[in-house]
Amino acid sequence: MKRRFSKLMIFRWLLGLAIMGIFLTLALQLHGKHYFMFSFMILFSALLLVYWRFEHQPIKTTTLMFMATLIALAVIGRLIFAAIPSFQAASFVIIMGGMALGPELGFVVGATTALVSNLFLGQGPWTPWQMFAWGLMGFTAALIAHTVIGKRRLPLAIFGGLWGFGFGWLMDAWYVLAYVQPLTGKAFLTAALVSVKFDAYHAAANVIFLILFANLWQQLFQRLNDKYDFLPTQK
């Protein structure tokens, strides 16, 4: 039974990501038009994963409140550092949230953070791509939560640093695919080199916050969960 459920779980993840990929491809074809509609399509796809999970394991009200709190903290963590390009605490919160909540809910925390924070910083054709990138960050953080990477400070910091660059490369890829013709390897490389300074700021922020606060947050989550039992169990 456990093996069958695991296959079903992998299938729903792949299906959800495939649907999001279709929406992102359509967004590319429309060259930035209707970006707000596609942003909500990405969020809707992520919520489908959550609904599917809900059918097998109901989500507690306390879990939803915890998610809302994390999203609010991530948005604040992005806004307070807005004067420093790409340096922000949002990714740290998303990584910690994904590790605590699991892949589906971690994706929702990341995607919603991008959508809500852009209400203050500005929506645009980049929004659905930021939602997808931050969603994947929360998703993958859940996958390493119970491995040596998630349990040790230095490997976790390296994971966060790599995602600082990975986030930037995803956004570079979106820009080149949408606006650069003809598509060449040189175009992608140029975009990555132009943005490397900002990606380094993002990576540095992730590393700093994870080294300083990851253990503290994990202990805090555990103490709160011991008292309120709000973290979902992973199957």
Rank of each mutant, 00 (worst) to 15 (best):
M41L: 15
I76N: 03
T63L: 08
A68T: 08
G102D: 08
P103M: 05
T63F: 03
P125W: 08
I71E: 02
L47T: 02
V148Q: 15
I42N: 00
A89C: 15
A83M: 12
I59T: 11
F81W: 13
P103R: 05
A111H: 03
L143Y: 15
L70D: 03
M137D: 00
V116A: 04
I59V: 13
F54T: 11
I94F: 04
E55V: 13
E104R: 05
G77S: 08
F54M: 11
L105H: 00
P85L: 08
T147Q: 13
T140E: 06
G98F: 00
A141I: 07
M99F: 07
P128K: 07
F81C: 12
G98K: 01
L49Q: 13
S45Q: 03
I94N: 06
F139L: 13
T69G: 11
P85A: 10
V93D: 05
H146V: 15
E104S: 10
V116T: 05
M137T: 15
S91N: 13
T127W: 04
I80S: 06
V50F: 01
A114H: 09
S45G: 11
L43V: 04
G77W: 03
F40I: 13
M67Y: 00
R53F: 14
A83Q: 10
T127R: 03
F132T: 08
G110M: 02
L136K: 03
I80C: 10
T147H: 11
A114M: 13
T140F: 15
L119I: 11
N118I: 09
M96K: 06
P128L: 09
I94Y: 03
Q88K: 14
M65N: 12
A133S: 13
M65P: 03
S86C: 08
V109S: 02
V108F: 04
T140R: 06
W52K: 09
G97N: 11
T127E: 07
M99L: 09
A83D: 11
F81I: 10
I59L: 12
G102R: 05
T127G: 04
G138W: 02
G77R: 03
W52V: 14
L136I: 09
Y51G: 13
G97E: 06
Q88D: 14
L73H: 05
A141G: 08
A74P: 07
L115R: 02
L105C: 09
T112K: 02
I76A: 12
L115K: 02
R78H: 08
P103I: 06
A100Y: 01
L73G: 08
L101P: 01
T69H: 06
L43W: 00
T147N: 11
F54K: 15
G122S: 07
A141K: 02
